[in-house]
């Protein structure tokens, strides 16, 4: 039995275990309209990548702990000092100074509003969200940018007040650990694994 590829880092080196690729035989592609002559072959490929979050790692770790982190430029020499970034941005877009990490969970719980939205009936391969997917773009008081995420309960509307929910049980450590529900939603109504 194969083992999913697993990685940890020790002494700044990747330590890998398990299978990072799976072999599937290729198949011929033939022309049914012309005597089944050969036209090509399939090229199967199933491979696991090793992807590092770098300076964004605290953001993805915090989601599983029920916290929404953002960043702020505190460089006194920056023309745009005080800019707050959500999506979490490691460096200020203007001065390129290292931003300060801030916890904006409470801000999100009280000021998050749907800026725009859409309801997606289709998806690409490897999608794991239930369809229809309700994309929402969320604005917050005091935040200069507009976060893209998804609504787990209810029908989205522009101007709707929403609150963050976090996949604190079996987190995936991806952006999918963060979702949103209409303000006032009760904890018992949340999707499996999520908490307010």
């Amino acid at each position: 039995m194969s083992l999913f590829g697993q990685v940890h880092v020790k002494n700044k080196k990747y330590k890998i275990k398990g299978d990072f690729h799976h072999l599937t035989p290729n198949m011929p592609i033939r022309n049914a309209d012309d005597g089944w002559k050969l036209m090509g072959v399939t090229n199967p490929r199933d491979m696991t990548y090793i992807h590092m979050y770098g300076g964004e790692a605290p953001f993805f770790e915090a989601l599983g702990e029920g916290k929404l982190l953002a960043t702020r430029c505190d460089n006194p020499d920056c023309e745009f000092k005080g800019t707050v970034y959500q999506p979490f941005r490691i460096h200020c877009a203007d001065c390129l100074g290292r931003n300060t990490v801030i916890d904006m969970t409470e801000n999100a719980k009280t000021t998050a509003t749907v800026h725009t939205f859409m309801v997606c009936e289709r998806s690409g391969a490897f999608n794991v969200l239930d369809k229809p997917i309700k994309f929402i773009n969320i604005e917050f008081e005091g935040v200069d940018t507009i976060l893209m995420s998804y609504l787990s309960i209810g029908e989205p509307e522009i101007g709707m007040k929403v609150v963050p929910i976090f996949r604190t049980k079996n987190p995936t450590y991806t952006i999918l650990d963060l979702s949103w529900v209409p303000a006032g939603t009760k904890a018992e109504d949340l999707p499996e694994g999520f908490s307010l």
Binding site: V119, C120, G124, N127, I133, F135, N137, M148, S149
Partner: peptide, 28 residues
């Protein structure tokens, strides 16, 4: 699979996992 590959042109940590479909980013 083509839609998945196109969605890889969005930010892979912040956007692509949200459905892996580029049309969604225009629909908003």
């Amino acid at each position: 699979e083509g839609n998945f590959l196109i969605s890889c042109a969005a930010d892979k940590d912040w956007e692509s996992p949200l459905g892996h479909i580029y049309t969604g980013y225009y629909a908003v």
